[in-house]
Amino acid sequence: MSMLKSSVGRKLTMAVTGAILVLFILGHVLGNMSIFVGPEGINAYAVHLRDLGPLLWVVRLVMLVVFVLHVWFGIQLTLENRAARPVDYQQKKNLVTTFAAKTMIVSGLVLLAFVIYHVLHFTLHVGVDNVDQLAKAYMGEHFDVYTMVVTGFGKAINVLVYVAAMILLFFHVSHGFQSFLQTLGLSNECVQPKYQAVGKFLALVVSIGFISIPVLIMVGIVKL
């Protein structure tokens, strides 16, 4: 039996990749918090990352593979699941499942779109004003991430997209967290409700963490 053909095998892949993504966003949100220290904080953090050199590329590659696998199987499994009930109920009442669980593919696909947009915006600097100026603005040789972020979130549309995506991230992770523990065989009926609570809490903390940045910029607490 091939791991990547079986339903549980692919679920395991989803879970492992999902867990890596959760670790990633945890790291990401912690890193982003450095913006509150001021320009030096986040810019130093960015320099630090860039100094990793080839290692950064390894990480990026791994994340890409993880992401592609996660997305690919997510879409595939969802399509199969739809096909498994060709004629739908006239009346169906769900008793325990959550909004988050029912909309994993929606939140996932929106996150996919968001990630592309996000990478284009903050990593490849598409649509960033004065890129040339910013390029050497930090300590005369580094990219000024701080200014880019603060000006970026000066635009309402960017804030809106970002906040919306992070709300969906909340839903995705609130189901995803307990889901990967269950999928990895680490659950039972005693801990399952606890996982669900922890998952929700974690998702909340992460998304509030992310959201706090554009919001604080918008209200002017974080500024240039």
């Binding site: 079986s6 339903s7 679920k11 498994a84 769900n94 499942t97 889901s179």
Partner: peptide, 18 residues
Amino acid sequence: MIAAHDLEGFGNCTNHYE
């Protein structure tokens, strides 16, 4: 048993607990 389950056209579990 999982392979047989998949062959029958059942969906995949996504932990709804319904």
